[in-house]
């Protein structure tokens, strides 16, 4: 394979008290590809993202980002690595005492030396991309949950990241809005060629976007394969996931083939 892994989790284990959340996760994220992490609620998907971001330290095992062990990186090194990140937290984590506009402008103001007029142009474009207009002066508490998600996305994309981590980007959005978000992903990814790690419950729609699907099951990455392989796999765990999340439609297709 000529592909390069930008992020590698090697035998990552993490426990909270008696609960072992990650039991030896192995996962490689390929450069320029979209990896979608799926799995039941509370399985530890967000925890995997937090490990990669360097916010949580594994009990054992390694998390390599661009070949560097992120849990041992110094403050400066960490900042250099994170400079290429675009992150959407599951709860969006907007700065709640700043307006929508300032939230999206913040990375530009703190990390670049662009003049305010230029910043305004970029922010407006990103907000329009996410279909949020006319709410510039509102505070996060004054907008809807779905809007918060989209502001978070606009903020994550504003610095043209090399690698994005989106934790449930479309949860809480209506179908039309989430389709629109997927189109935006598709467009920005062909434009920016970023690597993407997306946690989603929006199966099977998210598969259209995915190059790889990683299924987290019982604290382990059960498989990391292409969506086609995933949907046609006859592995019992994957079959069960496919049947419960996608319903009878797909399973009856399978039966028809048999």
């Amino acid at each position: 394979m000529s592909e390069k892994a930008v992020v590698q989790l090697i035998d990552v284990k993490k426990s909270y008290g008696p609960q072992q959340v990650l039991k030896g996760v192995n996962l490689s994220i390929m450069e320029g590809k979209t990896t979608v992490i799926v799995g039941g609620s509370g399985q530890g998907k967000s925890q995997i993202i937090k490990h990669i971001l360097g916010l949580v330290r594994p009990d054992s095992g390694k998390v390599l980002v661009y070949g560097k062990d992120i849990s041992r990186a110094g403050k400066r090194e960490l900042r250099a690595i994170r400079a290429g990140f675009g992150v959407l937290f599951q709860n969006a984590a907007l700065f709640d005492s700043m307006t929508v506009y300032d939230n999206v402008a913040l990375p530009l103001r703190e990390r670049t030396r662009l003049p305010e007029a230029e910043i305004k142009k970029i922010v407006d474009r990103n907000l329009a991309l996410m279909d949020i207009t006319g709410s510039d002066d509102k505070y996060p508490a004054q907008i809807s949950g779905g809007m918060r998600k989209r502001v978070g996305l606009a903020r994550a994309l504003v610095l043209e990241p090399r690698i994005i981590f989106f934790d449930e980007p479309t949860t809480g959005l209506d179908v039309a809005k989430s389709n629109e978000i997927y189109r935006v992903f598709f467009r920005t990814q062909t434009q920016l060629k970023y690597t993407a790690v997306i946690v989603s419950h929006d199966v099977p729609k998210i598969f259209k976007l995915a190059d790889y699907v990683a299924l987290l099951h019982n604290g382990l990455i059960h498989s990391c394969i292409t969506p086609e392989e995933f949907q046609l796999s006859d592995d019992p765990v994957i079959r069960e996931f496919v049947e419960t999340t996608m319903g009878q439609l797909y399973s009856s297709e399978m039966e028809g083939e048999l």
Partner: peptide, 25 residues
Amino acid sequence: AEIGIMRISEQIDALECMAIDPHKY
């Protein structure tokens, strides 16, 4: 209270992930 709330609502984490130093900012 302000910094505490920023911490529990993951705003400090978000700053770090944007490569903005919360100490500085």
